[in-house]
Computed example of a mutant assay.
Amino acid sequence: MFTSIRCQLGLVSKSKSSIKNKRFIHQTSFLLQKQLKNSSTSSLFGDITEIDTEIKKKSNDFSDSLQSMNEKFDINKITLKNDEKLQEFIGHKPTSAVDKLLTPLKKQLYEANVASNGFFKNNQIITLNGEQYKLKLTREEIDVLEPSLYVKSYRIKSSVKKATIFLRFIRNMNVKQAITQGQFHSKKIGREVSQLLSDSLKSAPELNLNPNELYISQIWSGSDGSWVKRVDPKGRGRSGVIHHPYIHIRAILKTSITQKRLAWEKSQKEVERKPRFQLPNEKLRFKLDGHYKW
């Protein structure tokens, strides 16, 4: 049966060694070089496939346009407002949260309130252009108006449980004091947090914020992306999987204006609180009986 198949293919051989040593397909390097020279596309499959010349032209045009843009514009001077291509892609000009939530009159009243008191006092009467107004803002509107700095980190090799222990410790602390605590703290996450906060102080002058007055209003951590897995070998031929956790840290830094407002609101609550009595300050209108009845 096997000999008949080999006869049809023209590969009849009695010894196995001759079959092993035989090379069915063979092409020298000279023939390959000759084929590459003759083909127009300089590839082995040049006769089958052809490269589209239009794709080459488009790629060259795109690279030329990028070079012309670099010569025309300075990348360091491009911002969100003067980038025309970005504005066309967005479709509308981005508006700030202050413009969305507050009217121009409310912003004027807020600025007058801060100028007179040093910080914002809610439900206070303000005189503006010879008229009196009573401004009352919600918590969301106050957070938008007060200056703040949002900070975020990259992937950090740690867990949420370990990071939360240190983050609770530095919450409501001055930023420079928190950086010092992170450098000398026993937790490894402290150095990562101190590096994050020190980088945020560099961007504070760009937003007209005083780095000495910044404090940590909110700071939290969360799981970041996919975790790295590793095999955990165990006894008796078994194995498990170790997950290496990665987290990110987010923080909101605020100024002393917010601290003064919170202290004033706390004192106002104490003033408005009613006095507490251990017993009601009223006359007894019933007869007291003894504890034992027999």
Rank of each mutant, 00 (worst) to 15 (best):
G130V: 10
I165P: 02
L101Y: 03
L135T: 11
A97H: 08
R168G: 12
E192F: 01
A178H: 02
L102R: 01
I156H: 03
A178E: 04
N113H: 03
P104Y: 02
I90D: 04
Q177K: 15
Q124D: 14
Y133E: 08
E141Q: 14
F89L: 14
E146R: 09
K106P: 04
N123M: 11
I179H: 00
I170Y: 00
K93L: 09
Q132V: 09
Y133V: 10
K157I: 12
S158G: 06
P94V: 09
L167Q: 03
E146I: 09
N113M: 04
G130D: 15
K134W: 04
E111W: 01
G182Y: 02
V160C: 07
P211D: 11
K136G: 05
T103H: 00
Q108A: 14
L214E: 01
F89D: 05
T180P: 03
L201E: 01
L167E: 00
I170N: 02
K188C: 06
S159M: 10
T180R: 05
K162E: 09
F169I: 10
I90V: 15
I219K: 01
L101N: 05
L86W: 07
L86G: 03
S221I: 06
S203Q: 03
E141P: 03
K202T: 07
I219Q: 02
K100A: 14
R171Q: 13
R191K: 15
N129A: 11
S148M: 06
N208A: 11
N208Y: 06
V175G: 01
I165G: 08
H185I: 11
E111S: 13
F166R: 05
E141Y: 03
N117K: 05
L167W: 03
Q177E: 10
N172M: 12
Y150P: 01
G182F: 01
Y150W: 12
E88W: 13
E88S: 10
R168P: 06
K187A: 09
E206W: 00
E146D: 14
H92I: 10
Q218C: 05
L145I: 14
Q124M: 10
Y110T: 09
S186F: 12
Q177S: 13
L149G: 00
P211H: 12
